[in-house]
Amino acid sequence: MLRRRKWMFAVLAVLPTLAIFAWVRLYPIAEMFNLSLRDWDLLSPRRPFIGLENFIDLFDDRLFIAALINTTIIALGVAIITIPSAIVIAALIHSRAGSKLAPFYETAIFVPHVVSLVPAALAWKWIFDSELGPLNAFLGVFGIDPVAWLHNPTLAVLCVIVLCSWQALGYAVIIYLVGFKNLPVSLYEAARLDGASARQSFWFITVPLLKPITLYVSVVILISGFNVYAQPFVLASDTQGSPSHLVRVLVYDMIENSFSNFRIGYASAEAVILLSIVMIITVIQFSILRDRSGR
């Protein structure tokens, strides 16, 4: 009787959330798969089934390939810059834990992560400005000629990586700081008694022990890197002001195909590919974790 009442309460309590989930998550996800196999121009009432044609077309599409390459470079670039610097900075902050400056360090490094994306990107846009920006002024001190950072497609990708890393770093440092707090102190004392230097303990104790955190942070950063949109939108708009033209990314290409080219099926196929990339990263994460715990 009581069990039945409990069950009724549980179901009634979860039902609204479940309904919302089904409506704003499960249904659109299913619909995305469905549309990716169809040809739909947004206006026509017919949405003929065309099998895998969208996917085949995508791999002949130079703009899509460019977007895929740019996005991959950005995601990997941000991870490669952010992870090692975050470990070192978190280690340094951790070594000064309890000092009066520690809260300031945490705040200053975390603020870029919480400020709104667009104002932050606007700040960097001025820094990289070829004619008026402080970066070129700074380089000029060393006799380096002004560089058109945001007008060269390769350099613009680099600028996007710098901006995204600046924002991701604070997040990574906060997660690592939690990891540092949970490290067993006794291990370090034992290592010191055995004559290990601080650098050795860092390399041979800290880094291996933090591996699960490194894995987690890398996955979060890689996935958000593959979904990058606002940063190139603001930073890499070309001289005519078309957003993101110089650094085409997947989400941008998807939105353009949907709402400018009216190729909804095609854009959905892109979404399926984006999802596959994210799934592959997640599966790799889980298999590495399982490997470790299996040993």
Binding site: A271, L274, L275, V278, T282
Partner: peptide, 26 residues
Amino acid sequence: INVLFFLFLATAVVPFEVYMIPLYFQ
């Protein structure tokens, strides 16, 4: 209830940008 919980968690893997376009039509 447990099955539901894993369903909720599993969809968290799907980035918002992926299903944004169908959601737009809703």
